[in-house]
Amino acid sequence: MLFDFDSMRTVTQVFVFLLAGLSLATVIGWALSLANKEKDYTELKQRINSWWIMIGIFGLALLMGPLVTVMLFAMLSFIALKEYFSMTPTRLVDRKVLFWAYLTIPLQYYWIATGWYGMFIIFIPVYAFLFIPFRMVLAGETKNYLRAVGNIHWGLMLTVFTLSHLAYLVMLPSEGEYQSLTMSGDGAALLLYLVMLTQLNDVAQYVWGKILGTTPIAPTISPNKTREGLIGGVITTGVLAMILAGLLTPMIWWQGLLVGLGIGIAGFIGDVSLSAIKRDIGIKDSGQLIPGHGGILDRLDSLTFTAPLFFHVMRYFYF
């Protein structure tokens, strides 16, 4: 069934709020560029426009049900892995191995779509982990072997394993029910909760850093990140998480607050660890797929850390 607004009432309501907030941001962007003609607001406008598209795609996928959402995240994993392999050093002899690495994506998302939790949770860390070096020794090249095998493992964990937890969230059942592929249950609300808070946390840390930031927190990795930005962002996210907990999750207010603070900190670590990779390679953005934001990994970096943590907290306590 397409567009099942009834079982998705809260999700739809939260989306309406999000779109209202985005409209406000768009209007502010327009007003700023009208009032202040000398300054260039192109990047801000590009960012806001990209938010419209990203929220639009995400919202439509959620409303169209778990199967579409799972397919969307499979596509995101593919683009993210391609971006990762395009920016890190890979060896010509490993072309076949890289091909196998891409093949893990349809398999991993197939386990999710069929609700096979046991396979979903061990496929990349166990089977892919063992298969990749096996396939690499068949090629017989030992020069840079360790770097190459580590590189591929890191890429798979980062772009396939961690991001696929987002897709598994949507498959979590409503209480006492089996999850179907066409009707969204509580999982859709959890997914919205996590993605929204992680992204708002990025924005909040950036804004607090701009307003109050003075003390760099990781000067060698990300000079623009400040302690004030981090603290302001984490508190903002915690408060929002507390308010939204009753609406979108089975948690009560103080549990929501704790989870929100956790999302804020984990999101920061995810962001900084991708920055470290980019700095190591010597590039600024992982790509330019999303105008004003950079590549897809630049947008998903915080989620690679928050997704598995949030998923396991939810699964351990509530499902």
Binding site: K82, E83, S86, T90, R95, F99, G287
Partner: peptide, 18 residues
Amino acid sequence: HGLGKTLPKGDALFVPFF
């Protein structure tokens, strides 16, 4: 840049890179 990684000379296996 990148197509010599996706489909280099003398190889029929297509491996996507940007």
